[in-house]
Nucleic acid binder design. Structure first.
Lengths: 129, 129
DNA sequence: CGGCATCCACAACGATACTG
DNA sequence: CAGTATCGTTGTGGATGCCG
């Protein structure tokens, strides 16, 4: 959409520390929203374990609606993180897996999610104190 | 190990690997949503650098409204990740900083955000191919 | 200055029905 | 099976005004 490309003039050196993500028009924000979306996080975590079919994925992620899962997977596919493989058979058979890029992202997401699960007791204690 | 149904009797005690986060009623999900929320991610990243005042934080995060920033900070404060320190003076002076818990979370979040920023070129290339 | 209360627009979401 | 279409509901988010 908005392609004011700030990367064109970016020096080769790593200039990312607290990068332009803080700018409202930073294009990374869109990807970030997909990855950290309610179902995006969980889809990445599940797909990191192995390839899943659509309904398999849906069963694995408690509470997700068919509609939202489809939309989320389309976002992640559009970002090149998820690979959709449709077998032209009857009945349809579609498999979702992570791309190499997706595996890297999923790992970071899982680390965060694991941290929360592990530290939930500490969080709860902090809440009550 | 059949992973199609995470609700069916977890044999292992509190194994976090792909833990019960996949269950719709997992309490970790709420914290996860706060941390990965649109402004939560950015607030944590900014606060990781140093303590900020409210309006300072607002200026640092491009595009956030007063209302949403306040709400986000309340969520994170409620989760014990953010410390709110109000000085009873006129005009009011409120500082936001990370708790030790918050610093751990912020680090994981930043790693993810940095990865996205660094790899945005690869993501864009994946999109067009 | 740092909120909170209210209102309102719209996007996200879930349930259901339907299609290839 | 794997979606899309549609609908009604809930939630998110911005704008404004008020108050300590």
């Amino acid at each position: 959409m908005n392609s004011t490309d700030p990367h064109a003039a970016l020096p080769l050196s790593r200039k990312v520390q607290a990068g332009n993500l803080l700018a409202a028009d930073c294009p990374s924000r869109e990807v970030l929203r997909h990855v950290t979306s309610r179902w995006g996080v969980l889809a990445l975590i599940v797909l990191e374990t192995r390839t899943h079919r659509f309904s398999e994925l849906r069963r694995a992620i408690g509470g997700v609606s068919e509609r939202m899962l489809a939309q989320t997977l389309q976002w992640l596919e559009g970002d090149g993180l998820v690979l959709r493989t449709a077998l032209e058979v009857v009945p349809p058979h579609v498999e979702y897996s992570l791309t190499p890029l997706g595996r890297e992202a999923a790992e970071k997401v899982r680390v965060l999610a694991d941290w929360i699960e592990i530290n939930l007791p500490r969080i709860r204690q902090a809440q009550s104190s």
